[in-house]
Write a protein that binds this DNA or RNA. Structure first.
Lengths: 206, 206
DNA sequence: CCTACCGATCGGTAGG
DNA sequence: CCTACCGATCGGTAGG
């Protein structure tokens, strides 16, 4: 255990690589945890559930993570990173504001509703509250940058008269319309998601 | 126990009175459970938490409810009833569609964010998934009627050209904008809530 | 509604 | 990463 514990610590504290870069087993745990957290919630998911999902015994996940808390942290971090990265790509393009807006909506919704990202996204949206402010520091920082991206775009749309309101509150209304899709959207291919983005753009733009 | 169990059963199965009509102790439990479910989530809340909050010992809540599940059911039911009742009052008035719309937004948001209803509303929005479809029958029926009310109003607004889209999806976008406020709104009196309703109306109406 | 309790399960650890 | 385990806690119950 001297060895094992040492490894566990450095793995848990490490600069937290993105999932694709992670050692396979650690990544497997994060993905399984994400799925279970989305399906049953953090508190109702047991270490045994997670271990079982990746073919481990109940003690083994603790070789990769110090606590269940740290697993949640890894899942939530993956969630905000993926969304931020996906939307930033679209935000950086210099297409007209309206087209950029629709592309950002599409990227956000794809992360929320698509198979690749939805487990992490759901944990980010609904289970973050089980983490304390100190643990959330990196997540909060990324979230701030993410929100600023949207706010800047709303400001542009206001300037061209395409949106009625570019306040913080308006941005939160918009985020709500998007994030709530998680509660009712039933997957029927990426085509459905893209159509949803179009419809939302038409709903809020003039 | 023959007595106690008999009572517990009839209390749990009874036609589920509204909170104000309930025996005080049962109502106390429902209110305490609602608050704790909102603060910590259903799974992370223990019977001992709930019992402690109303000054009981850990076994005593089971005199009023057969299971923890049934407590959640009572909380969620109170949530949908309160929201439905509050918004229906506004929907029945025969003011112009725009005014009625704003009043309905206000009523919904007051239930979500005001002190009286927010615990029940939060449980309705976030903890219902721990209940099974059969248990949710009454809740689902009320929810359907609730949604139909909104859909009808959107249709009116579409006819007068005040909204761009009156589809089911549009309604869900609107619900999302409202329900998401639970995640970010910090109470500063009912004035803040009413202003929010106005701002949302202006955001989606033309 | 309390006392006293039960079996099951939980997150986590020692030792390899 | 497994085996074997621990103390704590959980939902729920018998009996009054």
């Amino acid at each position: 255990m001297a060895t094992a514990k040492g490894k566990a610590k450095s793995a848990a504290v490490a600069p937290a690589p993105t999932i694709s870069e992670e050692g396979n087993r650690r990544g497997d745990i994060v993905r399984a945890a994400g799925r279970l957290f989305r399906e049953k919630g953090y508190s109702a998911t047991t270490i045994r559930d997670i271990a079982g999902a990746v073919g481990m015994r109940s003690g083994s996940p603790f070789y990769h993570f110090k606590t269940k808390h740290d697993m949640l942290l890894a899942v939530v971090l993956e969630g905000i990173r993926d969304i931020h990265a996906a939307v930033e790509v679209e935000a950086r393009k210099d297409s007209p504001p309206r087209a950029r807006f629709e592309a950002m909506l599409r990227a956000h919704l794809r992360q929320l509703l698509g198979e690749e990202g939805r487990d992490f996204a759901a944990a980010l949206l609904h289970e973050s509250r089980h983490l304390e402010a100190a643990e959330l520091a990196e997540i909060t920082a990324l979230k701030d940058r993410y929100e600023a991206m949207w706010q800047a775009l709303l400001k542009e749309l206001k300037k061209t008269g395409e949106i009625a309101d570019d306040s913080r509150t308006a941005r939160l209304f918009l985020m709500g319309a998007m994030n709530w899709t998680v509660q009712w959207y039933r997957p029927e291919g990426p085509k459905g998601i893209d159509a949803l983005a179009k419809q939302l753009a038409a709903f809020v733009l003039r």
